[in-house]
Simulated scan of single mutants.
Amino acid sequence: MYGVTLDLEETTAATTSATDTNDDKNLETEKKDTVKRKVALLLGFLGTKYGGFQINPEQKTIQAEMELALYRSGMISKDNFGTQHKYSWSNSARTDKGVHACAQVCSLKLELPENDWEAHTDNNTVEERLVGARQRLQKNLPDDICVISMNRTTRNFCAKTQRDRVRYQYMIPSFLLHPDWRTIMTEQGVDINSGREARENYSKMPLSVEMATKIQLILREYRSTEDNRNLLQSALKKYEGTHPFHNFTKNIKPGQPQGQRFIESFEVSDPVIVDGMEWIPTEVLGQSFLLHQIRKMVCVAVDIARGAVPIEFIDKALSNKENLALHVAPAQGLFLEMSYFDGYNRRKNSQSNHDLLDLNWTVDGPVKDRWIQFRDVVRDHIVQEEKNEMNFIQYLFR
């Protein structure tokens, strides 16, 4: 179902060393004729090779790759390179290590030739004016980062503060709902009860590759039932509304206001079978999410759907009087699917900025087509990653 290949305009892999002596020669535009204006970038990326989105001096990150590509494309100056506030960088979400996205939004001031900002015909939209700049930027990015759209915005646009809602998808392999997975592991010679303290170091694989592969071949044949999918939906529905989610993150205590979050919807889609394994897509829409919140919500709901805990456990986890330690589902099933800026669009249009396109990537057209294409790439990657690395098998064992 998700077997597609990524087709980006003139995509090439960029080297990641910021000390490349040829950087100055690679600048593609001359500064003397450039004009600096605010834009919004709609980005897609596969997070497997990165330590998260935000710049971290000790790890390879998506933001660092973006900054290097912007510099090599001549869109930020040498003086501003490495100092993000000088070009007003902001991003709408901070994704964890290993999490993917097809709708991360970043705002910044770009230096582009005046010709890039101008429409060449009366029918050109603002998005079409920046196609050349988007393609130049894409050429300097690795092939696991995609610039889906580049739109000019108002001067005061900020991706972090002006996003209204965000939708994430978590793909659950159906075998997580298998009621007898412990019996299957035991029958294969796995001691699931011993050595749990020794397995707390998650940097080590608790199951050998051979054993994990053997168990995966058995569990991948499992198909979810209507009953456990309904139970999964009932559990996810309990998160909807405004609740304290201090138990679903870390470093927030019961009663602290920053733990309050509003969930608009949490839905289960029909299962799909890819390469012989069934997956259950889920979508959660909310204003904002805490660190690990979605992965912990999924973990508890899966335990309920499997019959490991009663559905009333969620009421306890959402209580302001409880302080619980909850497990975290693997990052590999999660991706940021869509970002919404309805409030910004209304304010922009009320101020007669009609020459600027709305930040709405759900409208039919080339941008939506690229977004759908990259979303399928993300889904395909999740399926292949589980086949190769067996992260969810290891998660069950731990």
Rank of each mutant, 00 (worst) to 15 (best):
Y2A: 07
T11D: 11
T12Q: 13
A14G: 11
T15S: 14
S17L: 15
S17G: 13
T19S: 13
N22P: 05
N22F: 11
D23Q: 15
E30V: 14
E30N: 13
T34P: 01
K38D: 05
F45H: 09
Q54A: 10
Q59T: 02
L68T: 00
G74Q: 06
S88H: 12
W89A: 07
R94Q: 08
D96S: 06
D96F: 05
K97V: 00
G98A: 06
V99G: 03
H100F: 03
A101S: 06
A103R: 00
Q104F: 00
E111V: 06
E118T: 07
N123R: 15
E127N: 15
I145T: 07
I145L: 10
V147S: 15
Q162P: 08
Y170K: 05
M171W: 14
M171K: 11
I172E: 00
S174Y: 01
T186C: 03
Q188F: 01
V190P: 01
I192L: 07
R196L: 12
Y202G: 14
S208V: 03
K214D: 08
Q233F: 04
F245W: 02
H246G: 10
N247E: 09
F248N: 08
K253Y: 08
K253D: 07
P257W: 01
Q260Y: 12
E267V: 13
P271W: 04
V272C: 11
I280K: 08
I280S: 12
I280P: 05
T282S: 14
V284P: 03
M297F: 04
M297Y: 03
D303G: 14
L318Y: 03
K321Y: 15
E322L: 08
L324C: 09
L324G: 13
V328H: 04
G333F: 09
L334S: 06
R347H: 09
R347F: 06
D358N: 08
L359R: 01
N360W: 02
T362G: 07
V367A: 03
R370F: 04
F374E: 06
F374W: 13
V377K: 14
R379W: 10
N391S: 14
F392R: 00
F397R: 11
